[in-house]
C-alpha cells in the first residue's frame, strides 16, 4: 500500500463503508480541530465515540467519553487517531486487542507511523495516514467547494437538496488520484531539505 498518495476510491470506500468511528484524542474544547471533525462526522450520520482518558465522566455532543478503546464494549468500524505520530504505536496495539478488531485505522492530518501501519495491515486492517476524514468527506462530496477548495471531483448530476445532518453522496468522478502533484511535491520536500 502506497501511503504517500491515496486513490480517491480507496478513501471513498472507507468513508462509504464505515458506520461507527471511535476518535482517540477527541477534545471537548470547541476550538480544537478534533472537536470540529467529531461534530462534522456526527452531523454526517456517523456513530461517533469520543476516547480520551482525561475527560471520562463528561460527554461530547451527547456522547460519553471513554478512557480507552478497550472500554467501548461494542464493535467499532474505524479508529480515528487524533494524536501526534509519536503516540500512534500504543493506540494501534490497543486497537488490535479489540474483539472484534476495527476494520480501519485512520491517522489524522500530520500523523504518520509506518511501523504501526504495517502491523495493522498485517492483521488485515485498512490504514490511512496523514489525512482528515472531515476534509476528505467534504472533498469527495464537494461540500468543501463552498470554501473555494479544490474537491478534485466532478459531477454532472443535480446536487441533492441540502438538509441538516444528511449523508452526502461521495460517488463523484475523481479528477486525479488521492493528491495533487503540488502536495506530493510538498511531502517530498519535507523529507528532502534544500
Amino acid at each position: 500500500m502506497n501511503h504517500d498518495a491515496y486513490d480517491d476510491n480507496y478513501i471513498r470506500a472507507i468513508l462509504n463503508g464505515v458506520k461507527s468511528i471511535a476518535m482517540v484524542g477527541a477534545s471537548p474544547v470547541n476550538v480544537r480541530p478534533s472537536y470540529f471533525a467529531f461534530k462534522y462526522l456526527a452531523q454526517r450520520g456517523y456513530d461517533m465515540i469520543p476516547v480520551n482518558p482525561g475527560h471520562v465522566g463528561k460527554s461530547l455532543l451527547g456522547k460519553p467519553f471513554v478512557a480507552s478503546l478497550l472500554d467501548i464494549g461494542r464493535p467499532v468500524d474505524m479508529i480515528d487517531i487524533f494524536r501526534n505520530s509519536s503516540h500512534i504505536g500504543p493506540v494501534v496495539d490497543e486497537a488490535l486487542k479489540m474483539t472484534p478488531p476495527p476494520k480501519v485505522i485512520w491517522m489524522q492530518l500530520g500523523a504518520r507511523d509506518d511501523a504501526a501501519a504495517a502491523k495493522a495491515e498485517a492483521a488485515g486492517l485498512t490504514v490511512v495516514m496523514n489525512r482528515c476524514p472531515k476534509i476528505e468527506y467534504g472533498r469527495l462530496s464537494s461540500e468543501i467547494s463552498w470554501m473555494g477548495v479544490n474537491s478534485r471531483t466532478l459531477s454532472s448530476k443535480r446536487a441533492p437538496m441540502p438538509t441538516q445532518g444528511m449523508r452526502l453522496s461521495l460517488n463523484r468522478m475523481s479528477v486525479g488520484g488521492g493528491e495533487t502533484t503540488a502536495s506530493d511535491r510538498a511531502a517530498k520536500n519535507k523529507n528532502d531539505p534544500a
Binding site: S145, M147, G148, V149, N150, S151, R152, V175, T180, T181, A182, S183
Partner: peptide, 12 residues
C-alpha cells in the same frame, strides 16, 4: 474551485 483545478492548487 475551477481556477484552483486548472492551476493544480488546493484552493483559491
Amino acid at each position: 474551485e475551477r481556477v484552483a483545478a486548472l492551476e493544480g492548487g488546493t484552493a483559491a
